[in-house]
Computed example of a mutant assay.
Amino acid sequence: MVQTVPQLMTLDEFLDWYPDGYGRYELWNGVVIEMQPTGTHEQVGGLLGVKLGVEIDRLSLPYIIPRQAIVKPIDTDKSGYSPDVIVLDQFSLNEEPLWKKHSTITQGKSIRVVIEVVSSNWRDDYGHKFIDYEELGIPEYWIVDYLGLGGRRYIGSPKTPTFSVYQLVDGEYQMQQFRGSDRIISLAFPELNLKAEQVFAVGV
């Protein structure tokens, strides 16, 4: 669920305003949106964060998973997204001008994987964010549609829970989809041992 805050802002104003530790917000074309995810939505995101965190630790990868971060789309000062899970390249953060003060990412190369867990506003994940993440050059984007809410043009018919992994190839996302006992295939985490059904099960 989302709730709007009735005040138009630029991204700089939004970042200065952001009440750290008191909720989760995004900025869409100057409009502040308060995100209110369900418990099952948080369970799915939490599981993915744990699984990737274990891989990062096991392989001693130079990645971090922040509790919260804002991703700034290209060519706008009026939007900023707060992904459900984001994996960052620790070494690239030194080149991020807004990271230390506002935990904000402006360059796709700083991100290894960005994950959105689908809820009632599924059009944002498959539409606006897909376009902006691709344009930013984020190498891997996961859309976790654990309830099968997305449009049929995205997940097929009949609609079923679908785990979509988009990988950037020559500047465009190429998609692989996983269901049931399919093992999730990720270039960022090639040894990840996780099946789609394991993720969907925690959202039931």
Rank of each mutant, 00 (worst) to 15 (best):
Q107N: 14
P66T: 06
L149Q: 12
W99Y: 02
V199S: 02
L98M: 10
L147K: 14
S110F: 05
G49A: 12
Q174S: 05
D170I: 05
K159M: 13
G127N: 02
T4N: 09
L192C: 12
V71L: 15
Q90F: 08
G46M: 08
S186T: 13
F14W: 02
W142I: 06
E13H: 03
E96F: 03
D84T: 04
S164I: 13
Y63E: 10
S92D: 11
I56V: 15
Q90I: 08
E140G: 05
F178Y: 15
G148N: 14
M9C: 09
H128F: 00
S164A: 15
Q43S: 14
D89W: 12
V118L: 07
F178Q: 11
K101E: 14
H102V: 01
G30F: 05
R123N: 04
G108L: 04
I184E: 01
E140T: 05
E95W: 12
V2M: 13
V202M: 06
G180D: 15
G151F: 00
D170Q: 14
E191F: 08
A188M: 11
M9F: 10
I143G: 03
S79T: 06
D12N: 12
P83G: 04
D16C: 06
T38P: 00
G108P: 01
T4I: 12
K159R: 15
Q174F: 03
Q174R: 13
